[in-house]
Amino acid sequence: DAEFRHDSGYEVHHQKLVFFAEDVGSNKGAIIGLMVGGVVIA
């Protein structure tokens, strides 16, 4: 149960990062950079 909640939280966090990247611009380099930055921060 705890693992499921953790996975759901991660999924929401990931979707927010992707949405933010798409909102800023559909530049693949920027999106990839944001994703990598999110992984480093996390």
Rank of each mutant, 00 (worst) to 15 (best):
D1P: 13
D1V: 05
D1S: 09
D1L: 04
D1T: 09
D1Y: 10
D1A: 11
D1H: 10
D1M: 15
D1F: 10
A2C: 06
A2P: 07
A2Y: 13
A2W: 13
A2T: 12
A2F: 09
A2E: 08
A2S: 07
A2H: 10
A2N: 13
A2D: 07
A2K: 08
E3R: 14
E3Y: 06
E3F: 14
E3I: 04
E3K: 14
E3H: 11
F4C: 07
F4V: 08
F4L: 07
F4N: 10
F4Q: 10
F4S: 05
F4M: 07
F4K: 06
F4T: 11
F4G: 13
F4D: 08
R5P: 05
R5C: 07
R5S: 12
R5F: 04
R5Y: 05
R5G: 10
H6L: 06
H6G: 11
H6N: 11
H6R: 09
H6C: 11
H6Q: 13
H6S: 08
D7C: 12
D7K: 13
D7M: 14
D7Y: 14
D7R: 12
D7S: 15
D7P: 14
D7L: 11
S8I: 11
S8W: 11
S8N: 08
S8M: 09
S8H: 14
S8E: 08
S8Q: 13
S8L: 04
S8D: 09
S8C: 03
S8F: 13
S8A: 10
S8V: 05
S8R: 11
G9M: 07
G9R: 13
G9I: 12
G9Q: 13
G9D: 06
G9Y: 08
G9C: 09
Y10K: 09
Y10E: 13
Y10G: 11
Y10T: 13
Y10Q: 11
Y10P: 12
Y10A: 10
Y10N: 12
Y10C: 10
E11R: 14
E11Q: 15
E11N: 14
E11L: 04
E11A: 10
E11V: 11
E11K: 11
E11I: 09
E11F: 10
E11T: 15
E11S: 09
E11P: 15
V12A: 13
V12W: 12
V12T: 10
V12P: 10
V12Q: 08
V12E: 08
V12M: 14
H13P: 14
H13I: 15
H13G: 08
H13L: 05
H13D: 06
H13K: 09
H13S: 10
H13W: 07
H13M: 12
H13N: 15
H14G: 13
H14M: 06
H14V: 14
H14F: 05
H14K: 07
H14Y: 07
H14A: 13
Q15N: 13
Q15S: 07
Q15Y: 03
Q15D: 07
Q15P: 15
Q15C: 15
Q15V: 15
Q15M: 11
Q15I: 15
Q15E: 10
Q15G: 10
K16A: 06
K16C: 05
K16G: 06
K16L: 02
K16F: 01
K16D: 04
K16Q: 13
L17Y: 14
L17F: 14
L17A: 06
L17R: 14
L17C: 11
V18L: 05
V18Y: 15
V18I: 12
V18C: 09
V18N: 09
V18A: 09
V18S: 07
V18D: 13
V18P: 14
F19C: 04
F19K: 12
F19M: 13
F19D: 14
F19T: 09
F19V: 13
F19W: 04
F19L: 15
F19I: 15
F19Y: 07
F19Q: 05
F20G: 13
F20L: 10
F20S: 09
F20V: 13
F20E: 06
F20R: 12
F20C: 05
F20K: 14
F20Q: 08
F20A: 05
A21D: 08
A21F: 14
A21Q: 09
A21L: 14
A21P: 08
A21T: 08
A21K: 06
A21R: 06
A21V: 12
E22R: 14
E22Q: 15
E22I: 04
E22V: 08
E22H: 15
E22K: 12
E22G: 15
E22A: 15
E22Y: 04
D23A: 07
D23L: 00
D23M: 02
D23P: 15
D23C: 04
D23R: 14
D23T: 09
D23W: 04
D23V: 00
D23S: 08
V24T: 08
V24F: 07
V24H: 09
V24Y: 03
V24D: 12
V24P: 08
G25I: 10
G25H: 07
G25T: 06
G25S: 11
G25K: 15
G25E: 06
G25M: 10
G25A: 09
G25P: 02
G25L: 04
G25Y: 13
G25C: 11
G25N: 11
S26H: 08
S26C: 04
S26Y: 06
S26V: 13
S26N: 14
S26A: 13
S26I: 10
S26E: 09
S26D: 05
N27C: 02
N27W: 06
N27L: 08
N27G: 00
N27S: 04
N27T: 04
N27E: 00
N27H: 07
N27R: 00
N27Y: 12
K28N: 11
K28D: 00
K28T: 08
K28Y: 08
K28W: 03
K28Q: 06
K28C: 09
K28G: 06
K28H: 10
K28M: 03
G29L: 05
G29N: 06
G29K: 00
G29P: 03
A30Q: 03
A30Y: 03
A30V: 15
A30M: 07
A30C: 06
A30G: 14
A30R: 00
A30N: 08
I31V: 06
I31D: 02
I31Q: 09
I31F: 06
I31K: 04
I31R: 04
I31M: 06
I31G: 03
I32W: 02
I32E: 01
I32Y: 03
I32Q: 01
I32V: 04
I32H: 03
I32D: 02
I32S: 00
I32M: 03
I32L: 01
G33W: 05
G33I: 04
G33T: 03
G33F: 04
G33K: 08
G33D: 04
G33P: 00
G33Q: 05
G33N: 13
G33V: 01
G33E: 05
L34Y: 03
L34I: 14
L34F: 03
L34Q: 06
L34S: 04
L34E: 00
L34D: 00
L34M: 09
L34T: 09
L34P: 01
L34G: 00
L34A: 00
M35S: 01
M35K: 00
M35G: 00
M35R: 00
M35Y: 00
M35Q: 02
M35W: 02
M35N: 07
V36R: 03
V36K: 04
V36W: 02
V36E: 00
V36I: 14
V36G: 01
V36T: 11
V36Y: 12
V36M: 11
V36Q: 04
V36S: 04
G37H: 00
G37W: 01
G37T: 00
G37F: 01
G37E: 00
G37N: 09
G37A: 04
G37Y: 01
G37K: 01
G37V: 03
G38Y: 02
G38C: 13
G38T: 08
G38K: 01
G38W: 02
G38D: 04
G38M: 04
G38I: 02
G38L: 03
V39Q: 05
V39K: 02
V39E: 00
V40N: 03
V40T: 02
V40M: 03
V40C: 08
V40F: 04
V40Y: 04
V40L: 02
V40P: 01
I41Q: 04
I41T: 01
I41A: 03
I41Y: 08
I41N: 07
I41L: 05
I41F: 12
I41V: 02
I41P: 01
A42V: 11
A42T: 15
A42F: 08
A42N: 15
A42C: 15
A42H: 02
A42W: 02
A42R: 01
A42L: 15
A42G: 03
